[in-house]
Simulated scan of single mutants.
Amino acid sequence: MLGHALFVTTFVLVWEQATARGLLEPTFFGRPSGVARYLWKGFVTEGQLWLELGYTVLGASISFVGGSICAMAVGLFFATFPRTHRATEPYITLLNAMPRIALVPLFLLWFGLGIGSKIAVGFSLTFFIVLSATIAGIRGVDRDYLLLSRALGATPSQIFFKVTLPSAVPVISSGVRLGMIFALLGVVGAELIAAEHGLGQIVAYLQATFNVDGVMAILLLLALLGLGASSLMSRLERRLLAWQ
């Protein structure tokens, strides 16, 4: 922890001195003091960033929760009815291959400039990531466990809930953690294109007005947000897998 703090402090000091001495152009790279002033103004003096942060977090949270639940439900359905999965797999692959950011104009047309279109983008990214992880986790269950369970007289439901599902949890949890990050990326990416509120919309405005300090501040905020979400999911994953 001390090493990380030392590295960050050194990096910030070198960055500040490089811009102060003209080694880096502040117009293109910004400077730490300017980033700090922007964040102070946005969160303390004016407080506008709280609203924008709230819109982004709300959109990403709804996208993540809705996409993950639907994906796991569909994945478990496919595991129960493998023929249905084989029949629909080409269509799922086709839909997953579509670049969701390129579909943002359609989502904007369908759901408007509000938070609905951002949730749709984040949902679509999260859904396919978690669905792939759920299917892969269930397929990766050791066949010896399944054969042994059947030999001991376990029913199909007992095998599914006591053998298949617990064995697939590590892979599913990894997909869920990745889905959380992609939900945030999808929402912010949609906000960059067109939005009424959100951190992505703020970044687009700051970039258009050449406010590099503000852009760096929002990027730092998004990075910390993603780091916090990933750390939270890692702790939850460790608790879920404590039985292993």
Rank of each mutant, 00 (worst) to 15 (best):
L6W: 08
T9K: 09
Q17F: 07
Q17R: 14
A18C: 13
A18L: 14
R21C: 01
L24A: 05
E25I: 03
E25R: 08
G30C: 12
V35W: 03
V35A: 07
A36Q: 01
Y38G: 05
K41R: 07
G42D: 09
V44F: 09
T45L: 09
G47M: 15
L51G: 05
E52A: 15
L53I: 11
L53R: 07
G54L: 13
T56V: 15
G59M: 11
G67N: 06
S68L: 07
V74Y: 00
V74T: 08
V74P: 02
L76P: 05
F78A: 14
T80H: 07
F81Q: 13
T84M: 13
A87D: 08
E89I: 12
Y91F: 11
Y91I: 10
I92F: 14
A97K: 08
M98D: 01
R100D: 02
V104H: 12
L108Y: 12
L113K: 09
L113V: 09
G116M: 02
F123L: 10
F127H: 04
F127M: 04
F128M: 10
I129S: 04
I129V: 13
S132W: 14
T134K: 09
I135N: 05
V141E: 12
Y145R: 06
L147V: 04
L148W: 04
G153R: 06
A154G: 05
T155Y: 04
F160C: 05
T164L: 08
A168S: 15
S173Q: 05
S173W: 07
S173V: 10
G175A: 01
V176E: 09
L178N: 03
I181E: 00
A183M: 03
I193T: 05
H197A: 08
H197W: 03
Q201P: 00
Y205P: 00
L206S: 12
Q207T: 08
D213Y: 05
D213M: 03
D213W: 02
G214H: 06
G214P: 00
M216V: 02
L220K: 13
G228S: 14
A229F: 10
S230P: 01
S231H: 04
S234T: 15
R235G: 13
L236H: 00
Q244G: 10
